[in-house]
Amino acid sequence: METSNAKKKAYACYQCGVCTGICPMARLTEEFKPRLIVQDFQSNQTEDILKKNSLWLCAACYCCYENCPQMINVTDIIADLKGEAVKYGNVPLKVNEDKCIGCANCEYVCPYGAIKVDVHDSKSKSNPELCISCGSCAAECPAIAIAMQNFADQQMKSAIEKTISSFGKGELRIVSFLCNWSAYAGADSTTSSRSIRVMCTGRIDSLFIYHAFLSGADGVLIGACNRGDCYYASGNINAEKRINKIKKQLGDIGVEPERLRFKWISRSEKQKFADVITDFTEKLKKLGPSPLRKMR
């Protein structure tokens, strides 16, 4: 029923592209374009979209709906498509039940109740229709049993390596993980900081940070939403806890903990972002290249 209602509205679309322009997730990746989704939905050629993982990038913020001149509820169209996509086995995350230990850490961090430990077999079960794939569960899972389909572990690791290899000789290698909702929107283009965008800082696994340092980063910056500002409720708080633990470990091993910085930057604080980057670069210049780079 709902599908047909949404479809009626979709016919009003004249492909102006405001939805894609305003979409915070379309900024993140080229794979996700609400305009094209509506186009395919109009002409009933949804099979391709239904098989793509990028469908799950929609975070249901309703920016497209609010800005659409024709008042087309693109978000609801995508929500319907998500429901369809599950039938094709297209889900935002996959739980490896052989690995899952039923510890419920995922259940505890999920702000949407989209992943729960089943009482019968004590394995995590995800509910794709509630999930908006922020990735906090995957970052928190001690058994590495949760595989995100977007921003997968391997994708993130290659992004880190790519970023680090893009720096020239003698350049300070700062890897910054920026929240797409806040810090990235507030980011200025700076020379010595290549940024990796994430849907939420809650996705940033401790392994990514260690991987960045081991691959030769001089500094790692994490730009998150302010407290209470997180689109995914608590992703930034979880990230901060994780980062503080890593800082302690880095300090113990002999890598200056100042090389890892966690900052709250809202999307309107462009000046703050510039200040943070300048300050961080200054600090790193004083510290010099990372001690871990000597061996490379």
């Binding site: 690995k99 510890c103 850490n105 928190e140 001690p142 058994a143 696994d205």
Partner: peptide, 10 residues
């Protein structure tokens, strides 16, 4: 493992 102190990730 459950308390995230000695699981696979740790």
């Amino acid at each position: 493992g459950i308390y995230q102190l000695g699981g696979e990730k740790q």
